[in-house]
């Protein structure tokens, strides 16, 4: 047992060869445990001196698109409250609720594709999932039409299942 603090008992002669420190960048994002969203393939377009490309101006993808998104979202508020308040709604209002939900979902999925499969890194996946989404939305809209014409409507169906 020594009265000298352990920190003072370090070797007097430093080792001659100190291992080079490993690169620290790998610690987080290369660990499988932490690798929630691995970076996609690295893509280089042009040289380092190129200016950032200015996208072509198109109000359909800009202001109008933003306004249309808000219009759908704001419209969903009364459409969602109406069935709760009234107990049941007219089939046309019910179909409007369904169609608005599907379009809102469609735009949401588009945002996800743009965020997680960006065109720059995943051109094939980006285009493929957009095509799949369009097909899916068309089928769902057709299914909604079938449901509204052959079944009891969304509001009434949810009510019956919920209180079953």
């Amino acid at each position: 047992m020594s009265f000298i603090r352990p920190t003072l008992l370090r070797p007097v002669v430093a080792p001659r060869f100190v291992a080079a420190p490993r690169t620290a960048i790998a610690a987080f994002h290369a660990t499988p445990k932490h690798n929630i969203m691995p970076a996609g393939p690295q893509v280089i377009d042009g040289t380092i001196n190129d200016p950032a490309p200015v996208p072509e101006q198109n109000s359909k993808h800009g202001a109008y698109h933003w306004s249309f998104e808000r219009l759908l979202s704001v419209g969903l508020i009364p459409l969602t409250i109406a069935p709760f308040a009234a107990g049941s709604v007219h089939p046309v209002l019910d179909a409007t609720l369904g169609a608005t939900l599907v379009l809102h979902s469609h735009i949401g999925f588009q945002a996800c594709i743009a965020d997680y499969f960006p065109m720059r890194n995943w051109p094939t996946l980006h285009k493929g999932s957009k095509i799949l989404l369009n097909i899916g939305t068309a089928i769902v809209l057709y299914g909604l039409y079938e449901f509204e014409t052959n079944d009891v409507g969304i509001t009434e169906a949810v009510k019956r299942v919920w209180t079953a």
């Binding site: 599907v102 979902s105 899916g136 089928i139 769902v140 299914g143 449901f147």
Partner: peptide, 10 residues
């Protein structure tokens, strides 16, 4: 869920 049900219904 909406999409799965909609496609499933078709």
């Amino acid at each position: 869920s909406v999409y799965l049900y909609g496609i499933g219904y078709v």
